[in-house]
Amino acid sequence: MSESVAEKVRFSRYEDFRRWTETQPGYWILVHGEAMPSPSPSRIHQEISARLEMLLFEVVRRTGRGWVYDAPLDVKLREDTVYQPDLLVVLREHADRLRPTHIEGAPDLIIEVLSPTTAHLDLWEKRYDYAQAGVQEYWVVDPESRRVELYVREGEQFRLHASAQHSGRLRSVLLPDLEVDLETIFRDL
């Protein structure tokens, strides 16, 4: 396949998409069959992601409760929908979702750090797709407004459970040992 990046490239099967991405520069996601480039995150985005990953590592990996991964790692929600969340957690009881090349199905927890170019996707399509696939908890971190929103799954959709801006603490429902202090996450950025 030799389509230019400007042309829309569509896939109905993950394996075809994965083979195609191996010949393309950069990182790609698959949104309802359409291949989309995933832009490089900013330094501030990376700093926030790293701080959150350290917290997740302490609560999940060191206690043996599961696995923590960061982008880029494919999360295949359906054959035609593959995302690369900034951070994700797969609990031990869902180890069957771990594949050598990707996560097959819904991680238990996902954190997305918003970027100006992908904020709409994170707030709308991804949130809907994550809930439909079975993600139990979804965190959205906005570096510009210094706001964090914590969503929990109810039925097949997310409900806003808690949010804070600039300061305060948010505690995970899924992982009660996970508490995020906003002042620490956004300090010196």
Rank of each mutant, 00 (worst) to 15 (best):
E93V: 00
V75F: 05
K76F: 03
G105E: 08
R43H: 15
D86A: 04
T81H: 02
G155W: 06
R187T: 04
K8E: 12
P100N: 10
Q136Y: 06
P116T: 14
D142H: 09
V140W: 08
G168R: 09
Q132F: 07
V135R: 00
L174N: 00
A95I: 06
L88D: 00
Q132I: 09
D16V: 03
M54K: 13
I185Y: 08
S115H: 07
P85T: 02
R97S: 01
Q46E: 15
S38E: 12
T184V: 14
R13H: 14
V31S: 12
V90N: 01
L77G: 03
D181N: 15
A35P: 06
D74K: 01
R127N: 02
G33W: 05
A50F: 13
L30S: 03
A106D: 02
D16C: 06
T118C: 10
D188L: 11
D177Y: 07
Q165I: 09
T117A: 15
R99N: 09
R92K: 15
S115E: 05
L73E: 01
I111D: 11
I110F: 07
L77H: 04
I29N: 13
Q165P: 00
V90G: 00
A35R: 04
P37T: 04
D16H: 14
V141H: 07
L88K: 13
E47G: 10
Y128A: 11
K8L: 14
A131E: 06
R62W: 13
D142W: 06
L55D: 05
A162W: 04
E3Q: 14
Q136T: 10
V113S: 03
L55S: 12
G168F: 10
D122G: 01
P39W: 11
D86E: 07
S115C: 07
P143T: 09
V5F: 12
L123M: 11
E104S: 08
E137P: 06
T23L: 14
I48L: 15
P107L: 00
V59I: 04
Y138R: 02
R146W: 02
I44S: 13
S49V: 07
G33Y: 03
H45A: 04
M36W: 12
I44Y: 14
F57D: 13
E34C: 09
S2C: 08
Y138G: 00
A71Y: 07
R61E: 14
E179W: 09
A131T: 03
L178H: 09
L170D: 04
P100R: 13
R97D: 01
E47Y: 09
V113C: 08
F186L: 02
Y128S: 12
G134D: 01
P107N: 00
E53R: 13
V113A: 08
P25G: 05
E34V: 15
R146N: 04
I185V: 15
R51T: 06
T63H: 07
L91V: 10
R65E: 12
L91C: 09
I110W: 07
T21F: 06
R92H: 09
L56D: 01
